[in-house]
């Protein structure tokens, strides 16, 4: 190897070293940032206990759903007529229903269905609605076919939202058949206009920002501008809406099951459990419907609280205000 070659080799080695050290410092920076965010989050949760309660409920529901086969004392779909309509006891913590199925086991299995449907339906609606909303917002008030299509999409969304959501969802399930996929599709369909409007309003505000104009004059395509500059900066309200919407979708899933348009019996699902159980309240057997009702209410409440926290944390102004409050409290405490 000659000198030139050696020096080139050393040079490249030095460069590699520089890159390596840069990568290392980036990782450290990321770790620092993560630690800061975690500390901030913990401080927020301490300052706002209702947020903490929301996260606790949601995480508990998810964990119970995941580990249901390990926790549930009885199979959730097997009738046991010898033990029908038993009051809550040590043998059956939350009692049994009219076919002798253990209500506690069914309640902790239910999130597997309810959350799957709600999360899948909401995620699909968020992705589809947001993308359409971004396009519609981006081309709003321009002339030509793109503007016409934007207007048409908005009027179509108006028509969709004019229908009562629940009736619309029942109709969709009736058309596509009573299956998990149909319920997910129905939830996605009724929710999509919400994200469409939300994203559109965000895009309308952002598209005139200087950095968007800068991207435009630098020759970036519409697709690139939307994907790199507009959508990422419009996600805050979408994220906070997501959590609230998941809770609402759990409720809609339960409501569909309550009227018989939801999951197939005897699948453990809160709405169908309430529907089956509520008829016996008048005859004194309150437990088959009350416990699933409590589980459903708590879950929806939990997601609403998480949604509220995301709304605060995703908004830079409110986040800064909260940070200021936390610092002030810390100073007062010190």
């Amino acid at each position: 190897m000659n000198d030139n070659a050696r020096s080139a080799s050393e040079g490249s080695g030095a460069e590699r070293g520089a890159v390596g050290s840069k990568a290392g410092s980036n990782a450290a920076l990321r770790w620092q940032r993560f630690k800061f965010q975690l500390r901030f989050l913990l401080a927020v949760l301490r300052a706002r206990p209702m947020f903490a309660l929301g996260y606790f409920i949601v995480i508990s529901v998810i964990v119970l759903g995941i580990f249901a086969p390990l926790i549930a004392p009885y199979p959730p779909e097997t009738a046991n007529p010898e033990d029908f309509l038993q009051l809550p006891s040590w043998k059956h913590l939350l009692g049994t229903d009219a076919t002798g199925m253990d209500i506690f086991s069914r309640i902790i299995y239910a999130p597997r269905i309810d959350l799957t449907i709600a999360i899948a339906g909401t995620a699909i609606s968020a992705v589809v609605g947001s993308l359409i909303g971004a396009i519609v917002g981006y081309y709003q008030e321009l002339r030509g076919i793109k503007s016409f299509i934007s207007g048409f999409v908005m009027r179509a969304a108006d028509v969709l939202q004019a229908f009562p959501v629940f009736v619309f969802a029942i109709a969709l399930v009736a058309i596509f058949g009573q299956s998990l996929q149909s319920i997910i599709a129905a939830i996605a369909f009724v929710n999509a206009p919400i994200y469409l409007r939300l994203m559109r309003s965000q895009v309308l505000a952002i598209r005139n920002m200087r950095y968007v104009e800068a991207a435009y004059v630098s020759g970036a395509s519409d697709f690139t501008i939307m994907l790199r500059h507009i959508i990422p900066n419009s996600l805050g309200p979408i994220l906070s809406q997501l959590s609230v919407n998941i809770g609402w979708s759990v409720l809609l899933t339960a409501a569909l099951s309550f009227v018989g348009a939801g999951v197939v019996a005897p699948t453990p699902e809160w709405g169908s459990m309430i529907a089956v159980g509520f008829q016996s309240i008048i005859t004194g057997q309150w437990w088959p419907s009350v416990f699933p009702g409590i589980a459903l209410a708590l879950t929806v409440f939990g997601f609403a609280l998480v949604g509220a926290s995301v709304e605060v944390l995703a908004d830079p102004a409110r986040r800064r205000a909260l940070g200021g409050t936390l610092k002030q409290r810390a100073a007062e405490a010190a």
Binding site: T78, A79, T99, V264, A265, P266, V276
Partner: peptide, 26 residues
């Protein structure tokens, strides 16, 4: 008819024992 669903569930559980998978259609 509120008696049909529980009857069907009891039947479904019994049929599992003989290897018959009964899908309930409301």
């Amino acid at each position: 008819d509120p008696v049909q669903e529980p009857t069907a569930i009891l039947y479904q559980t019994a049929l599992k024992e003989i290897g018959v998978k009964l899908i309930l259609k409301k």
